[in-house]
Design a protein around this nucleic acid. Structure first.
Lengths: 204, 204
DNA sequence: GTCTATACCTAGATAGAC
DNA sequence: GTCTATCTAGGTATAGAC
């Protein structure tokens, strides 16, 4: 008996689908349980059978996003901290975003709402971990900005590039390319002072 | 000097200040008028005397942000579309962000709430205009991503860099530097030959 | 110009029938 | 598993006294 509830198909799954759709469309706060219930042609009480609270719905959605991210972090932490590893992190993260695009758009556009939703801290921590994986330990400020920008450009890109004509897949590749460049620039090949005649190397 | 903090002349201004503070802190939807009123030690009705609706408060806040942005756009549209102009746009935009940081953070974190608030479209249009000013007309996809990333890195940077140690002013400069590099990379000289002696309206 | 008091609505959430 | 019915709390907004 793999799955218990069978009678009406999986209502739980349908609730998640509709909830994510409405959360993304109108925002978390403005989406009411009544609205979700109506779209599913059930009552609010039916929702409460499957989820204890409204927040529980969003937490359950977050699982789908968390898994690939955690796997990515776990993988990266077992790798040498080389540039190749970092670029692979960017590549895989870009892939993870693609597979959970609506959810990520929701997270991006509802930061304020998500923040005090208890998964907010989790999400932020994950971003900081990824950031730590990308940057050098003693990185300069501009290189840190490059790494953060690389991460955020993949988030913001999905939403911002909607108004640019072009194939979505090509856009994704273009975003990945720029992010790759940023991380590469932030991780100079060998951090040795390669200027033998460094009489005045402009240090601002 | 007994500065009575409840001066009755500038209630409107005080409402704006407290509203922005709470909107930034808890998000737009979760901030109630009751909360604003309590913090000001007035009643909700007093708020409604100064602003027709809750949305009106946010619109009034938006004016402060809109003015410098509009001035920047107006200025840029009267300039030749050179790389120098574009870099100056980035520089001035970065400055505009600095002078209205809490508001911009609010806009960034409450996109979903702001979207159907009637100023959402205005805001988006402004971003697209800025984007159009930065990119070449026939720019490749990656160059367009570079320009968008330059803009968004300045937005996201302010929020994301909070967890990085360092002087805020230095961080701002680092962000500006990376944004400048992105726009520069997106406007390569070889794609559009720079003609140093072209007949152009004299720029001061 | 500001407040008291309140109208009216919808939210999230629960109890118990079927 | 889903329903009806209902609770409580809080929301936006208004009328009218001072």
């Amino acid at each position: 008996m793999s799955t218990g509830q069978t009678r009406r198909g999986n209502t739980r799954q349908r609730i998640q689908d509709v909830a994510l759709e409405l959360f993304s469309e109108h925002g978390y706060e403005k989406t009411s349980l009544r609205e979700i219930a109506e779209k599913l042609e059930v009552t609010k009480a039916a929702l409460y059978y499957h989820f204890k609270t409204k927040e529980d719905i969003v937490i359950s959605l977050f699982q789908d996003l968390a898994r690939p991210c955690d796997e990515l972090i776990a993988w990266a932490e077992g790798q040498p901290r080389t540039l190749e590893t970092k670029l692979e992190v960017i590549r895989r993260y870009n892939e993870a975003l693609r597979s959970a695009e609506p959810l990520f758009r929701f997270m991006q556009e509802n930061q304020a709402a998500v923040r005090d939703l208890s998964i907010g801290e989790t999400f932020k921590a994950r971003m900081l971990t990824l950031f730590g994986l990308l940057k050098e330990d003693d990185a300069e400020l501009t290189d840190q900005v490059r790494c953060i920008t690389a991460l955020f450009s993949m988030h913001a890109g999905m939403f911002a590039m909607q108004h640019v004509e072009g194939d979505p897949e090509e856009k994704r590749r273009a975003i990945l390319e720029v992010a790759t460049e940023l991380v590469t620039a932030a991780n100079p090949p060998n951090r040795r002072p390669v200027r033998p005649d460094s009489a005045q190397t402009a240090s601002p």
